[in-house]
């Protein structure tokens, strides 16, 4: 693995008596796509939220670009973005207005050109002036992805980025992400419940269960280690334990 741009060490989060994340450690290298797998409630979302500075860890550390997140929040988050199927952008703004606001928020230059390029890349031209509230769920997913890529992040957190997309658009999105990785060295932390997609996209996978890492490696390694036919069977085996 190339030198890590993300280093998570003994990260834990407790909410009262409940432990959501329990001492996990992992790294993401430059240009690496790390898949984060686990059943609902395994701690994936809490891990994401801690890495985005939205939830304070109970213990452990998160470092990105050799800087500690707690004490370098602005510098780090300037180079990070995220997209989630479960998060939208303000409904009362048009697609283009939302992208313009995001570009300003991250201090981008030449906003008009960047927005035009992103609209073209994500095939949003026909509905760029549409109010966000009028978008289909697939269009909304594409918009939140466009918002994440617009700021040219070095690290991207993607929570089920293709969940509500038709196979054609989902395929295009995956191609765009792989292209970005190739062109810019983008590092990605990726969750999906589509096991084929996880196998296709991830260089490595970590499997979370009850807040702990229970398996780590390439998809092939994990499948072989658990003696299952494919990643989906491993998921079912671990989730039901």
């Amino acid at each position: 693995m190339s030198s890590p741009v993300v280093e998570v060490r003994n990260l834990s989060k407790r909410f009262g008596g409940f432990t959501a994340v329990d001492g996990i450690s992992f790294e993401i290298g430059r240009g690496e796509i790390l898949g984060l797998l686990g059943p609902n409630g395994a701690g994936k979302t809490t891990t994401f939220q801690m890495m985005l500075g939205l939830v304070t860890p109970t213990s452990g550390s998160i470092r990105m670009f050799d800087l500690d997140l707690q004490s370098n929040r602005e510098t780090i988050l300037q180079q990070v973005n995220f997209s989630s199927t479960y998060i939208s952008l303000p409904f009362s703004l048009t697609v283009e207005e939302n992208l313009r606001v995001v570009a300003r928020l991250y201090g981008m230059s030449d906003i008009a050109t960047r927005v035009d390029d992103m609209v073209q890349k994500m095939e949003m031209g026909e509905w760029r002036h549409k109010l966000t509230r009028k978008l289909s769920s697939g269009q909304m997913t594409r918009l939140t992805l466009a918002k994440a890529l617009l700021t040219e992040p070095k690290v991207l957190f993607l929570d089920e980025p293709t969940a509500s997309l038709d196979p054609d658009i989902a395929h295009k999105i995956r191609a765009i992400l792989l292209e970005e990785r190739q062109a810019t060295g983008l590092s990605i932390l990726y969750t999906s419940h589509n096991m084929r997609e996880m196998e296709e996209m991830s260089d490595r996978i970590i499997f979370l269960q009850r807040g702990k890492i229970v398996a780590e490696g390439t998809a092939k390694d994990i499948v072989a280690r658990f003696g299952q036919a494919d990643l989906e069977d491993v998921f079912l085996k671990l989730a039901r334990e």
């Binding site: 985005l52 990070v80 939208s88 952008l89 303000p90 991250y106 918002k147």
Partner: peptide, 18 residues
């Protein structure tokens, strides 16, 4: 409240905005 209604707080506070 506008940010709450738009469910936009996560977008804002996961950005460099202080």
């Amino acid at each position: 409240l506008e940010e709450i209604w738009a469910r936009n707080l996560m977008n804002l506070f996961a950005s460099p905005l202080t």
